[in-house]
Amino acid sequence: MHTERSDIDIISQVLQGDKQAYALLVSRYQNFVFTIVLRFIKSREDAEEIAQDVFVKAYRSLADFKGTAKFSTWLYTITTTSCITFLRKKKLDMQSLDNEQVFDSADIIDSGMSANQVEQKSKVNMVSNAIKMLSPDDAQIITLFYKAEQSLEEIAQILGIEPNAVKVRLHRARTRLKDKMQTHFKAEVNDIY
């Protein structure tokens, strides 16, 4: 029997004053939000702090959630904005794939992998590691599409761009991911192809 309560039900309960009900939304979306934040910010400590801040901001603005879009779409919009604000404040480099540094850092990640990781021939781990090597923009769009179950239209809403632009960006991100996999995980890729 499917007993999971809908986001809208939980939100209306929270808006009526039941603060504790918000914990359900937090536990439901914490992994999604944390993963998206990690695509932007590599430090887990910073990412966790930002992800918590996202839920606090969402709580404060809950009365503004109109329910015209999915709660997750609204939440990921806050997530994206928070990450960009954090990066601007910290003046961290938004790594670009066209930049040589990315390949350097990719090499660092690659060479810095523990023996355990290298030994892991799992395709899933290989793809996860390849995603970490992508630029935040590419990694985010792939995460939103594949893990956060957002449609092209919803991603367009989160990123503030046209759905067609999302389609093109997603295609390019996947192509770059494939390139990364072929460059850094040749052996594993050979298992796939």
């Binding site: 914490q30 992994n31 993963t35 899933v124 793809v127 594949y146 494939k178």
Partner: peptide, 14 residues
């Protein structure tokens, strides 16, 4: 295959 692997990647956990 890439699509299926991407779908099977796991989420990070805080």
């Amino acid at each position: 295959e890439v699509h299926q692997i991407l779908n099977s990647t796991e989420l990070e956990q805080p």
